[in-house]
Structure formats: C-alpha cells, structure tokens
Amino acid sequence: MKIRILGSAAGGGFPQWNCNCPNCDGYRRGTLRVSKRTQSSITVSANGEDWALINASPDILQQIQSFAPLQPARALRDTGIRAVVLIDAQIDHTTGLYMLRESTRPLDIWCTQPVREDLSIGNPIFRLLDHFCGVRWHELPLDGTKVGIDGLDDLAFQAHALKSKAPPYSPHRQSPQPGDNIGLTITDTRRKRSAFYAPGLAEIEPHVWQAMCDAHCVIVDGTFWTNNEMESLGLAPKRALELGHLPQSGPGGMMEHLARLPAATRKLLIHINNTNPILNEDSAERAQLGARQIEVCHDGLDIEL
C-alpha cells in the first residue's frame, strides 16, 4: 500500500496568511528551520495507479500538481483519483471538492450520513456540485464493516466514530452525533498491511485505541502541542480539547498514547497547526518527538506498507 501525504497542516496551512505567530514570522524572515505546508489530505493506492483521495483540502489543485499519479495520463480528461473519502465536513477537508467540479463523471464520495447532511444543508457543496459534475454518495458505515470501493482493488476502508467537533455550520454543532468525525483504517487486503488515519481526534476511546494497536502505521492528530497553545499566544480563547484536538504533551496527551503502541508501529503526526512548536525542526519539542520515534508529516512524504 502506498500513501502520499498531500498536505500536512491544519486549517489555514503554514504559514497562515494573516498570522504573525513565532512560527509564521520565523518562516517569512528565514530565521527558523521550518517548511511550508498545505492543508491536510492524503491519498492511498494499492497499485500505484488508482487512488483514493482522503479529504479534499482547499489546496487540492496545488497538491495534484505536485503528485503525478493524480494527474491526467490515460485520456484527454482524466485523473488517477477513483473516489473521495471524507472523514468529516470541515472546510479544510471539503473545500477542494469545488475545485474538482470539472470532473467528466460524477464524483464518487464516501462519507457518513451526518457528514452528508452537513454538506447538503449546513454547507451545501453536494447540491452545488449537482450543477456541475454531480455526486454519487456512498455511505461509510459505523458498525465496523470494512467496505471496498470500485476501482480500488485490494483496498478496504473501515470507519471508526470519534469524539471531536462538527463544523460551526453543522445543525448538530452543539449536539454531537456519531459520524460527525471518523478515524479511518485503510487495509491492503492482499499484503495484509494497514494504516489508521485520524487528523482530528479529541479522545482515544477503547475502540479507537484498538484500531491504533491493530495498524502497522498510525497517522494521527498533531494539531497542538499544549492544550492552551492558542490561548497562551493571545490568538483565541479556546483550548485544544474544546476545538476537538488532543494535544501532544501533558498527562494523557498524544505522546503518552503513542508510546504504548507496539514497538514496530510507525507513528506520524498530521494536521499541524501553524502555532505548534514542532514545526520548528530545531525546537526542543521536535527533539522530544524524535526521541520517541514519532515523525512529523510534511507535504510530499511517501509511506509504503
């Protein structure tokens, strides 16, 4: 199974266009060893030719241009993208659907019922796309069923309901429903290798922990280093957990959980906010991750399982 990290940043990318935090300022001044990042998305394939796009970020056109297998190669109008799988309805994971409207066939989109509702009512992207290429919606079940997707032989997808936040425009923003946000196990059924992907994760419940333990590779929420990161910088009054993200440090943080995984598990952080000190490759926080064999995703990273 081949996984390409198309984008590794949280919403707004890095540097964020209107932010002058130490990381963004350091990038623009050239005083920090940091790399530019687009908003989080990955793509997955078993054969290297047919790909599932996992989330469609606002930077999707740039991401496609940077990765030849997604580009047209077989016909006048073409793409290696066979289906789109959405883990939630957040703007930074769905806005790219607008950019795919020139598709010559309806977009095959897999997501849960609550996400479909959000994208039909709260932020009606699906309805808008009906005026262009159209959408063929397929439900991602939450009962543990592994589903196959046409055109993606040897891959199976399993959704895991997560505790996180629905988008601000969701009808159930204040009354969370199972399926607002999911983690995704992606399995290469021929090679018997799997990855667990969850860029938004507020709590590691028992069923989520089991999915992480069963995977050969975990690519999980790396948004914030501390719970009060945004608050301490004077950027926002809300804390990481209130925003639906488990911080890496502190008691019960992501690092503690990742340390308990089997030694052979590859561990990566994605959806990294522009304020997170781990973006600075020379930071003490980055060194802590390295000592624990936890990787920080960057755009263009290739993973093979």
Rank of each mutant, 00 (worst) to 15 (best):
D154Y: 02
G134M: 02
H257V: 07
D50S: 15
L6Y: 09
A46N: 00
T104Y: 04
G200Q: 04
Y27C: 00
L53P: 14
T79E: 10
T265H: 02
T185A: 10
K192H: 10
L70Y: 14
K163D: 10
Y98K: 07
H257Y: 12
N181W: 04
P124M: 03
A166H: 06
L201S: 03
P237I: 03
I54P: 12
V84W: 06
D88W: 01
D108K: 07
N20D: 12
A9W: 15
I91Q: 15
G122F: 04
I125Y: 08
G244I: 05
L243M: 15
P15Q: 12
C21D: 00
D150Y: 00
T275D: 01
P247L: 05
W51N: 11
F196H: 00
E281V: 10
I294H: 13
A89W: 06
M230D: 10
P178Q: 06
E295Q: 15
E139W: 02
K146G: 10
I87P: 03
R260H: 03
H245T: 08
S45W: 11
Q90F: 09
N55R: 08
Q113S: 03
C213M: 02
S232I: 00
I109F: 09
S194A: 13
E242R: 10
T112P: 04
E102K: 12
L128Y: 14
K238R: 14
R266I: 00
I204D: 08
T104H: 07
R266G: 09
